[in-house]
């Protein structure tokens, strides 16, 4: 594992889990990030963004259009007298639940929860080892 990762784990052990943050020593012995690596990473990242946007446009826009159309049909059905209400109940339930999760997803992304996707799994095991050592 890279030293950057190590330092991130170490700092989040403190910042994330314990009340008082502590200075963390960062070792750079194994880092070796040259300029070419940096530019390689940059182009890799922009490639990933391009793919994400293309997929978003290809998949999200048609599916959202489809959804809106179907939802329109559903609304028309619910206007249809006393029986109409039954159709909309499960959909409204679903939309309410999903809206909550959509906002939670946005909140999590905005708070950096997905910045280093693999870090929590190392931290979890590290905490377990600490706890077992302190029994």
């Amino acid at each position: 594992m890279s030293s950057t990762m190590n330092s991130r784990i170490a700092s989040s052990v403190h910042a994330g889990q314990f009340t008082e943050p502590m200075a963390v020593e960062i070792t750079t012995a194994e880092s070796g990030t040259g300029e070419s690596d940096a530019s390689g990473q940059k182009s890799g990242r922009s490639m990933a963004w391009t793919i994400t946007i293309v997929f978003a446009v290809l998949i999200l826009i048609p599916s959202m259009l489809g959804f809106v159309m179907k939802f329109g049909e559903l609304m028309a059905l619910t206007d249809d007298g006393a029986d109409g209400g039954f159709a909309i109940t499960p959909v409204v339930n679903y939309l309410l639940a999903s809206a909550g999760f959509f906002f939670m997803l946005l909140w999590a992304a905005a708070n950096g929860m997905f910045r280093d996707l693999e870090q929590p799994k190392h931290l979890m095991l590290q905490n377990e080892r600490e706890l077992d050592r302190n029994v």
Partner: peptide, 11 residues
């Protein structure tokens, strides 16, 4: 490189 927590919690 992994520093030990200051106040380790007891199980």
């Amino acid at each position: 490189t992994i520093a030990t927590p200051i106040t380790p919690k007891q199980h």
